[in-house]
Simulated assay, not measured.
Amino acid sequence: VPGGAEIEITLNALFAKGDENVKKVKAALLKDKVVEVWEINTAIEGTGENAGKYESCYYNGYITEFELTANAEDFTEYSLTVGVFGEPKDGYATLTQEQLEAAQYVFKDTIVQTAAESNS
């Protein structure tokens, strides 16, 4: 893209042992299938017509790397790289309660917080 920046998304994903999604990800890599990626910030909730949703960015891309990085008794961890094409779209996304619970890591500042501060 002349004068434009290329976007790559690198992420780690945990899968339960035997999860069929591992096969789907591998197939997407091997068959050059388009994948969708949502980057959702659960620390920023929408207001007004976006109430109950979270700030997000949506991408389309191709998986360019898929590598096993950790193997434990109950799960496997893979590192993925997605090469994005087209323009990312900003907006707000809805998450189920189960998805919210799975998204256990919320951005925190580098300054140590007390339990009372992190709950406010």
Rank of each mutant, 00 (worst) to 15 (best):
I44R: 12
L95Q: 04
K24N: 15
N12Q: 15
L29M: 13
D90S: 09
V22A: 05
L30G: 13
N50C: 02
A103G: 15
Q104F: 05
G4W: 07
T64L: 00
A102E: 15
V82P: 00
A28T: 13
T81E: 08
F107W: 08
L95P: 09
E77P: 00
A43I: 04
E8A: 07
E39F: 08
A43Q: 11
N41F: 02
V112D: 15
G83I: 05
A16H: 12
V35F: 02
G83N: 08
F85G: 07
A5S: 11
D90G: 09
A43T: 14
V1I: 05
E77H: 06
L100N: 06
A13W: 03
E45S: 13
L68Q: 12
Y92M: 03
G4H: 12
Q113T: 07
W38Y: 06
Q113Y: 14
K89G: 02
F15I: 04
K24Q: 08
G61Q: 08
K31F: 07
K89P: 02
Q97H: 01
K17G: 01
A115T: 15
G52Q: 11
P2I: 06
E87F: 03
Y62F: 14
D90I: 08
K53Y: 03
N119C: 10
E77R: 12
G4R: 14
N21C: 05
G61R: 01
G91S: 03
G3A: 11
E6M: 13
Y54I: 02
P88W: 15
D74I: 07
S56L: 06
S120Q: 13
A72L: 11
G91Q: 06
F66P: 00
Y54P: 08
I111C: 05
T96H: 01
E77G: 02
V106P: 03
